[in-house]
Computed example of a mutant assay.
Amino acid sequence: MFSIGKYLFSASFALAVAAGSVPVAMIASPAAASEIKYVVNNVPVTTYDINRRAAFLKLQNRKGNLNQMAADEMVEQTLRVAEINRLGIRITDEAVDAAFKRFAGSNKLSPAQMSDILNKAGITEAHFKDFIRSQMGWNQALSARFKSQGGTMSEQDVVRRMLQEGGNKPSATEYMLQQVIFVVPAAEKGKMGQRKREAEAMRARFNGCDSSREFAKGLLDVTVRDLGRVLAPELPPEWADQIKKTKTGGATAVKETDRGVEFIGICSSREVSDDRVAKMVFQSETKTDDQAGELDKKYIAELRKRARIVER
């Protein structure tokens, strides 16, 4: 429903980056000269933060009072981050780095080239990645709010959509999945490289879900979980593409997560078409950007109303 692209990158920004039109003059004063401009629920928003965002807006070719627009955006980002933390949503560094790499690649740049452009523009890679992290987390918060408000189709809506489609029920792929986790405690992150090699070795031997527990027996701190049947529209966004590309009996690439290192085994897959599938498919098709935008505005207005925002 809530695509990160909707919030992250405008077409004008992509064109500006691709063309390399970097406004070097926008580079702001050093962090040492930074002053607190706003305090949002006891969290400071500094002139350094605002200058970085103003440079970001300029690179997007936004018009208007960029400093005020940047200040408003940073206040709202602070509110979003606080809500993300309250909900217990955690976006890993790996997920942020992957999004950064994808955006650089979409502009035919390496991450290093992308970082150089952002730094010269006065934005900095760190500010841009903070922005990515906040938007990814906010997307999850919006989805949770949508579900909590009963954002589902009624049976009448499903019937109406089916009639519009000629009475045919849509189909979707149903996967039987298994999750293999090589646990890495938070205090032992230095072992991530070793655990990743172990996971890669097990993944290379993976030939179906029946034998995975046998492989795991001789390994320390390895958890094998049967995830059951999952329809394609229900797949976690961070795994969906890899799962869809992986053949039955195979496993996805190894991924670092907040739990450690893991991969997903595809035990089986089949095409199904029933009332539950129809409702889910039709519902996913009707979750528009307009709905997302409206919910975003209402959610932010609610957070602003409850917040204590002091301008210095």
Rank of each mutant, 00 (worst) to 15 (best):
I243R: 02
A187R: 13
E256D: 03
G218E: 06
E234C: 06
L227E: 13
L235Y: 00
E238V: 11
A186G: 04
A201W: 02
M202S: 03
K217I: 14
A251P: 00
T252P: 03
E198C: 11
G190Q: 06
D226E: 11
S211I: 06
Q242S: 08
K244T: 10
Q194C: 01
W239E: 14
E188D: 11
L227Y: 07
G249I: 01
L231E: 06
K191F: 09
V222L: 01
L220Q: 15
R205M: 08
K244N: 07
T223Y: 15
Q242K: 07
A201R: 02
A201K: 08
K189G: 11
M202P: 01
P237H: 07
A253V: 05
G260Q: 07
K217M: 13
A186C: 08
V230S: 01
E256V: 12
I243N: 01
E234N: 10
K245L: 05
D210P: 02
V222F: 06
L235E: 01
T223K: 15
C209L: 05
G208V: 03
R213L: 09
E234Y: 03
D210G: 10
T246S: 06
K196F: 11
C209G: 11
Q194R: 15
R205S: 08
W239L: 12
R197D: 15
K191G: 05
R229G: 05
A251M: 02
M202K: 05
A187K: 15
F215T: 05
A199E: 04
P236D: 07
T252A: 02
V224T: 03
N207G: 09
D221H: 13
R197L: 10
T246A: 00
L235R: 03
L235P: 02
F206V: 00
S212K: 07
A240F: 06
D221F: 15
R205T: 05
K255N: 09
E200G: 01
E188S: 12
G208N: 00
V261D: 04
T252N: 04
A251K: 02
A216P: 02
G193W: 09
L220K: 13
T252Q: 00
G250A: 09
Q242W: 00
L235Q: 02
Q242N: 00
E238R: 12
R205K: 15
A232L: 05
G193I: 10
P233Y: 00
E214I: 08
R203Q: 12
R259K: 14
A186T: 13
K196T: 12
E200I: 02
A187L: 14
F206M: 09
T246N: 04
A199Q: 00
A240M: 04
A186E: 12
E234L: 11
K189L: 14
D241Y: 05
R197W: 11
K191L: 12
E234I: 07
V222Y: 04
